[in-house]
Amino acid sequence: MYDFHYHRPKTLADAVNLLKGKDEARPMSGGMTLIPTLKQRLAKPSDVVDLGGIKDLAGIKVEGNNVVIGGMTRHADVASSADVKSAIPALAHLAGHIGDPAVRNRGTIGGSVANNDPAADYPAAVLALGATITTNTGKHAADSFFKGLFETALSDGELITSISFPKAEKAAYMKFPNPASRYAMVGVFVAKTAAGVRVAVTGAGPSVFRVKAMEDALAKNFSSAAIKDIKIPADGLNSDIHASAEYRAHLVNVMARRAVDAATK
């Protein structure tokens, strides 16, 4: 790891200021992606701004029809939250299957969503549930938030303070993990909310995406049979030694059906 200047601001405003002044400053929430990257010397930040000292960024509350999760809330806390379990059990289930227990004790929802790793789990939930991402400067709708591989609508110095998930009538997340890394090789989050049915896929493409044909079919008939024959084109999907694009395309359908079955159980 290259050395850097370390900061642990106590307020969000301080954090933003620290990030602003420097060209190569990085915010760090859980550090579960950043630290491994630094260890491999694949980044050389001048400054690391640790958000761990900022009060009030972590926590889960229910506000009306929404579950609002603070940006610094750890995966383990989402997974074990009684509020999340009762309002959106699929979200608790998803959080409980990220990484491994030690990673879940450190990793945060804000960090995961801001990083937008193509194989991360949370983006599928954010997109499928139509969540709203709140930052220090404003709000983003899920649909316009995930821009591409590791790319989001966040601008420099913009930090996620919370994410608000509307409660779902039915929802489930099914993940086919990469056998080695346990990242999602394909993960499908299916949700039926007041806004309609959404199907979001992570792991398969460069960034999380929705499958409109499945959404339309499920809106008419929320059953796995309804999407059985909806094929996803392999073109443009990820390919590596563990899964070809064709295999991923196939798994999207399988995982989507399983998610629908789980959501209707």
């Binding site: 460069p206 960034s207 995406f209 499958v211 044909a213 084109p233 443009g236 999907l237």
Partner: peptide, 17 residues
Amino acid sequence: PAAPETVSPPSPPPAAA
């Protein structure tokens, strides 16, 4: 190109497609 109707626009692969 990927069949546009199966995938929704905001997502990268379809958009790219």
